[in-house]
Computed example of a mutant assay.
Amino acid sequence: MSASFHPIDDVLLAYAAGSLDQAMALLVASHLTLCPRCRDEVARAEAVGGVLLDDLPPTDTALGLLDAVLARLDEPAPAVPVSLPPPAPGSILPQPLRQSLGGDLDRVRWKRLGQGLEQALVLQSGRSRARLYRIAPGLRIPEHGHDGTELTLVLQGGFSDLNGHYLAGDIACADDGVVHRPTADRDGYCLCLAVTDAPLRLTGLVGRLVSPFLNL
């Protein structure tokens, strides 16, 4: 599998540094099991960080420490593979997600949001929530915007919005400047893991009508 859409570099660096919240880290770890490119990026960042911690010379001032760090960042880092197991045979869920769920899709307790759309809360950490979505073929999600950040990892099937066509392994990134209406591919159900750090903002007529009844 070769993903075409990836997390931005800042997100990968934060994951390598261990500074992402639990929900966002779960999504990135799940993406890494499916994306060799991002595994290599995280491995390089972790290798640079480890070298800096192990080998920085003693300094007497903060300025000297900063100079030493900047000097080491120019050096090539060894390629260290990130060891993350792929989905188990017969499963479409990455190992980090299966571990969080305590099993596979048969452990998911789906909540129906509307005709052809279901969600399940996987975990909540601070303001961030990780949810699974199961979307019927060809279904158009109500138009919505964002009061924060939303990252969506496709696990099965695919969907399209104004920014592209996303397939298994891809991550769609949306922020408070994006208003979109994702549409699932017609050739099968779309299964996604989405992480948000603020509620969605339903903007269309239908969205405004159903918004009071949805927990988004």
Rank of each mutant, 00 (worst) to 15 (best):
residue 115 Q to D: 02
residue 149 T to R: 05
residue 50 G to Q: 08
residue 156 Q to E: 15
residue 65 L to R: 01
residue 79 A to G: 10
residue 158 G to Y: 09
residue 34 L to F: 12
residue 147 D to E: 10
residue 65 L to G: 01
residue 102 G to R: 15
residue 107 R to C: 12
residue 137 P to R: 04
residue 133 Y to L: 08
residue 54 D to Q: 12
residue 74 D to S: 10
residue 96 P to L: 09
residue 116 G to W: 01
residue 42 V to I: 10
residue 112 R to G: 00
residue 44 R to W: 06
residue 66 L to N: 00
residue 146 H to I: 00
residue 80 V to L: 09
residue 46 E to D: 12
residue 143 E to L: 02
residue 103 G to D: 06
residue 77 A to W: 10
residue 72 R to G: 13
residue 95 Q to C: 07
residue 72 R to E: 13
residue 69 V to T: 03
residue 120 A to H: 11
residue 121 L to I: 12
residue 76 P to E: 14
residue 149 T to N: 04
residue 57 P to S: 07
residue 119 Q to R: 10
residue 118 E to F: 03
residue 150 E to C: 05
residue 154 V to T: 15
residue 81 P to K: 03
residue 109 R to S: 09
residue 109 R to D: 08
residue 85 P to M: 00
residue 73 L to W: 09
residue 139 L to D: 02
residue 42 V to K: 14
residue 111 K to M: 15
residue 98 R to G: 12
residue 136 A to P: 01
residue 146 H to Y: 00
residue 142 P to Q: 01
residue 136 A to M: 03
residue 88 A to K: 09
residue 114 G to T: 02
residue 116 G to E: 01
residue 80 V to Y: 08
residue 149 T to V: 14
residue 140 R to W: 01
residue 152 T to G: 08
residue 150 E to T: 10
residue 148 G to I: 13
residue 57 P to A: 13
residue 94 P to D: 11
residue 152 T to L: 12
residue 69 V to C: 00
residue 94 P to N: 07
residue 73 L to I: 11
residue 98 R to P: 08
residue 54 D to Y: 06
residue 134 R to E: 11
residue 155 L to V: 13
residue 52 L to I: 10
residue 50 G to V: 06
residue 53 L to K: 02
residue 47 A to C: 13
residue 48 V to G: 06
residue 157 G to E: 15
residue 142 P to Y: 02
residue 119 Q to K: 06
residue 66 L to M: 00
residue 132 L to Y: 11
residue 98 R to Q: 07
residue 59 T to N: 05
residue 109 R to M: 06
residue 145 G to W: 01
residue 67 D to W: 04
residue 86 P to F: 02
residue 134 R to H: 04
residue 96 P to N: 13
residue 112 R to W: 01
residue 54 D to I: 04
residue 155 L to D: 15
residue 54 D to F: 05
residue 125 S to L: 05
residue 52 L to K: 09
residue 105 L to P: 14
residue 49 G to E: 05
residue 153 L to Y: 07
residue 127 R to T: 02
residue 118 E to D: 12
residue 102 G to M: 14
residue 55 D to E: 15
residue 73 L to C: 14
residue 89 P to V: 10
residue 108 V to A: 11
residue 47 A to R: 06
residue 106 D to S: 01
residue 40 D to T: 14
residue 84 L to E: 02
residue 91 S to A: 13
residue 55 D to R: 05
residue 107 R to K: 15
residue 143 E to V: 03
residue 118 E to K: 04
residue 44 R to K: 12
residue 105 L to G: 08
residue 99 Q to H: 11
residue 110 W to Y: 03
